[in-house]
Amino acid sequence: MHELSIAQNMLDIAQEIAEEQGLLRITQIHLRLGVLSGVVKEALFFAYDIVAQGTMAEASSLVIEEVPVVIFCPECQEERSLFRPIPMRCPVCQTKTADIRSGREIDIIAVEGV
């Protein structure tokens, strides 16, 4: 389970941001998580609680926004969203494509604190 290492990285970055901004305590971290990020949401929540203990983010909450896979359909010439990454084909015209535009992100988008 690499969620522990992901959670630790996330906390380190959030702490850096909080300190830069003069926050004393982190109350919430907002994360965007792609369907193809390889991170299991539940495992990340669990890991986050463990790594946050005894830090300025103790008892803070993690808010995860899930991001669908966005593919580019070569036939429609349009981006299409997939909430499940299988099969990798355009939901409108069924054309296969491996052109992934997003859905792999593990991004911190906001840190909330006092």
Binding site: I17, L23, L24, I106, D107, I108
Partner: peptide
């Protein structure tokens, strides 16, 4: 203390 929201966009695996 007023709660504040700091908006960023940072890849968690940036270091790697």
């Amino acid at each position: 203390l007023t709660p504040r929201i700091v908006e960023v966009r940072q890849n968690v695996l940036k270091k790697n």
